[in-house]
Simulated scan of single mutants.
Amino acid sequence: MSVVVPVRETAGQQMTRTLATSGITAHTDADAGNSWLAINLGGADFPGVGVPQLVAYLYDTREDWLFVKEPVGSFPGTWRVAYDDGTRSRILFYGSASAMKATATETAECVAFITNFYKEHTTVPVVVSGNVLVDALAKHGISPVRDILSYAVPVKAEDPAKGGDDWSIYVADHQPSIDHPAAEHTGWDVCLCDGNGEPVRSLYDGIRRDGSLADCERDSSLAAAAIAEYLSTHRA
C-alpha cells in the first residue's frame, strides 16, 4: 500500500494566497531565484525596474535571506517587507516572530501591514474623458485624430469654394480639454469646421450652461452618435 505524502505549501504560496483574499497580487521573481515576492503599487502586473513596489522576503539571523519557495516551517525565520522604487530601498516591516518560531508563522500580521500600505499608496488609475470619447467613437468604427485640446475627424467638404477641401469635425470639452478626469467632464462640443478651421455649424452640444458636470459616458455616447450620423452621408 503506497502512502501519499501531502505537498507542503511554500512560504511564498501561503503569502500569495493570503494576499489574494485582499485583492492584492504578489509575484515571484524567477530572475532572482524566487527569493522574494514583488507587489506592484501601480497595478496588478509584475513591477518593472523603477516601478514602486513592496518586496516581501524571509529573514533569518543565521542566513539573512531565505527563499520564499521553501516549504512553510522549513527554517526558523520572519517576514520582512521593504519598499523599493528603483532609486532607494528601505525596510518598512519587521516580523515579530522569534528565531524559535517556524517560517511564516506571522504571515497574517505581515499581510495586514501590506494590505494597509497598499490601500494607502497604490495609484488609482484616473478615467480620462478623452479615452471615454474614443471608446464611444470606436463602437461606430470611427478613429479620431488627436490634437492638443481636441479630437478631429476628417470629413468631405460640403462646399469647397467656401473653405477648402479639408474639413473636419472637432470635439472638445468646455474646459477646453480632452485629458481631464471623466468625473470633471462638463460636456462635449462637436463642431463642423471648414478647411480654414472656421466653425460651420454645431453637430452636438452637451455643455452644461449652468456649470454643472455631465455624465461622461452618456455624453460621449451621444456625441459619438451625432458624429456617426453625419459621417453616414459626409465621409471624407
Rank of each mutant, 00 (worst) to 15 (best):
S2N: 09
V5N: 13
V5T: 15
R8V: 13
E9L: 11
E9D: 04
E9S: 09
A11I: 02
A11C: 15
G12F: 07
G12P: 04
Q13W: 03
Q14G: 15
Q14L: 13
T21C: 07
S22F: 15
H27M: 05
T28M: 10
D29Q: 13
D29E: 15
A30L: 12
D31M: 05
A32T: 11
A38P: 00
N40H: 13
N40T: 08
A44G: 05
A44C: 03
G48L: 10
G50H: 07
G50I: 06
G50T: 08
V51F: 01
V55R: 15
D60I: 00
T61M: 01
E63D: 06
D64F: 07
V68N: 02
V72C: 07
S74D: 09
S74M: 10
F75L: 10
W79R: 01
D84F: 04
T87D: 12
R88C: 08
L92G: 13
S96R: 14
A99W: 02
M100L: 09
M100E: 13
A104M: 05
N116Q: 13
N116A: 15
K119L: 10
T123R: 10
T123P: 00
V124W: 00
V124S: 05
P125I: 01
S129I: 04
V132A: 09
L133C: 04
V134T: 14
V134G: 08
D135F: 04
K139Y: 06
H140Q: 09
D147V: 00
V155T: 15
A157G: 02
E158V: 10
G164F: 11
D165W: 06
W167M: 07
I169Q: 08
I169P: 06
I169S: 08
Y170N: 05
Y170E: 12
Y170D: 05
H174G: 05
S177V: 02
I178A: 05
I178V: 14
D179G: 12
A182M: 03
A183E: 09
A183Q: 06
E184P: 00
H185K: 08
V190P: 09
V190G: 09
C191M: 15
G197A: 11
G197M: 11
V200E: 14
R201I: 01
L203A: 06
R209C: 00
A214H: 03
A214I: 04
C216F: 01
S221A: 15
L222V: 05
E229Y: 06
L231F: 12
A236T: 09
